[in-house]
Design a protein around this nucleic acid. Structure first.
Lengths: 250, 250
DNA sequence: TGTATGCGTTATGTATACAATAGCGTAGAG
DNA sequence: CTCTACGCTATTGTATACATAACGCATACA
């Protein structure tokens, strides 16, 4: 092997996958652009085999698209693709909440969710919310959604939700950040927190339909606000992977 | 290159993927069993690189599971995993039906669906249904579901539904075949056909909620019947990928 | 001047060689 | 007799060499 420097702590495939994902989400690679394997080899430091494995994984993840004649290109998304993805995730999370409610959840399992809820309450007490607090909010919110998903105890569903969240704008953190660009941001967070509270209450009382409904409403709220945020494209540097949105088309 | 025979009509990667999937679904590889790359190379006729790409794709598809220490094993599913997967797909198809209804569908787009419906009606007129007719039914039913999915015009949703159908028992054909083992099979097909009729009617009349509800009911029917079919394990040779079900655990 | 064809370059698809690690078996000692 | 440690083997992870196909450019002919 040449003078290539190898980091043996993580596999080359994973390293390449992370590096490429970073390049895509940071906008270094534009949507529609073909990804050159050779170039990827240079920028990631891995050799062609792990790079190819990473490309296949990223394609399955939905960030890349196979070109019929060979190779991969960065996928481009329309605004509707994005809102559909959010609604899609909301639907799946709704199902997860219903499963949790119908199948029953012990008080012990609900504990971390309630802690999350309380922590978010604490943050929202600040008006206006500080930048640091907002950053904590993003983390806590992601944690809340992840815990809720787990409550379903359904590996196939959890898997699908993870896949649906792979697209950055469809992840809990993603759309929260997008919404933060809106002037009504704080009000929105308060409504969202109310949703969180209701879903836990519904699960506790084993009301599956109500638990499901509130999660879907939660997503619809996100879709509405994302639309607004995309209208007034101010402070949109916070919106992750804005680079993935198709420019002129659709 | 040695005397290896190469089929140049399809890529080696695709060939390997198909061959391996076949081996898994046919039960040649048992759930939990580790897949040896070398062995896969021999049985598929491709070399290690395309085999590895195929393995990664099959993992993303959900048929394989990565082993932490390296390599892949055939994934095993519990009975609940299976019924959850069906309900999951039903939920997604419900969303697709709602999208179709809310966004509007032209008469021309609905045409193929109605043809499908009529063809199935024709088949169901036979009592009892012949083996050939049942086989046609499986194809037509799969086509109906695929067309319905397309009506949503939502690439992200279509993609997710495809993924959710990757597991054979969660695909439209899969659970129809499973249900066929039941004595009430014909009655079930008639109820299912009624669902098909209702969802088209709802889409035509732009009743999103009704379209969604009927698809979910459609899936719940499938879940109930699959449970029954798994109880009386007679004639279960028709059930695809029964081999994937965990034997003793869960 | 425009188009078509052919050749050359470049990138991807495939195969295989090399490296490293994990699992297993055996042997030795307590 | 059992447990531990060492080494071997088998299998995966990685790198690279080779084959092939696609794209572009240049040239020639209409």
């Amino acid at each position: 092997m040449a003078e290539r420097e190898v980091d043996r702590s993580v596999s080359q495939t994973v390293k390449a996958q992370l590096a490429l994902r970073d390049q895509i989400l940071s906008g270094a690679l534009r949507p529609g652009e073909r990804i050159s394997e050779l170039q990827a080899v240079e920028t990631t430091g891995a050799s062609r085999t792990p790079v190819r494995m990473a490309l296949v994984r990223l394609e399955e993840e939905g960030l890349l698209e196979a070109i019929p004649s060979g190779g991969f290109m960065v996928k481009a998304f329309s605004e509707r693709d994005i809102s559909d993805s959010i609604e899609l995730r909301g639907t799946l999370e709704g199902l997860a909440a219903r499963f949790a409610a119908e199948r029953g959840v012990s008080a012990r399992e609900l504990e971390p969710l309630k802690e999350c809820l309380a922590a978010i309450d604490e943050l929202l007490r600040q008006v206006p919310i500080s930048v640091d607090a907002f950053s904590s909010y993003v983390t806590l919110n992601a944690r809340f959604h992840a815990l809720l998903t787990e409550l379903s105890r359904s590996p196939p569903l959890i898997r699908q939700i993870d896949r649906a969240s792979a697209l950055p704008f469809a992840s809990p953190s993603g759309f929260v950040m997008a919404q933060s660009a809106l002037p009504e941001a704080q009000q929105i967070l308060i409504i969202a927190q109310e949703h969180h509270r209701v879903v836990i209450d519904a699960i506790e009382n084993r009301e599956g339909a109500r638990a499901e409904a509130v999660m879907r409403e939660h997503a619809r709220l996100a879709v509405r606000n994302l639309r607004l945020a995309l209208r007034n494209r101010t402070h949109l540097d916070l919106l992750p992977a804005l680079a993935l949105i198709k420019t002129a088309t659709d």
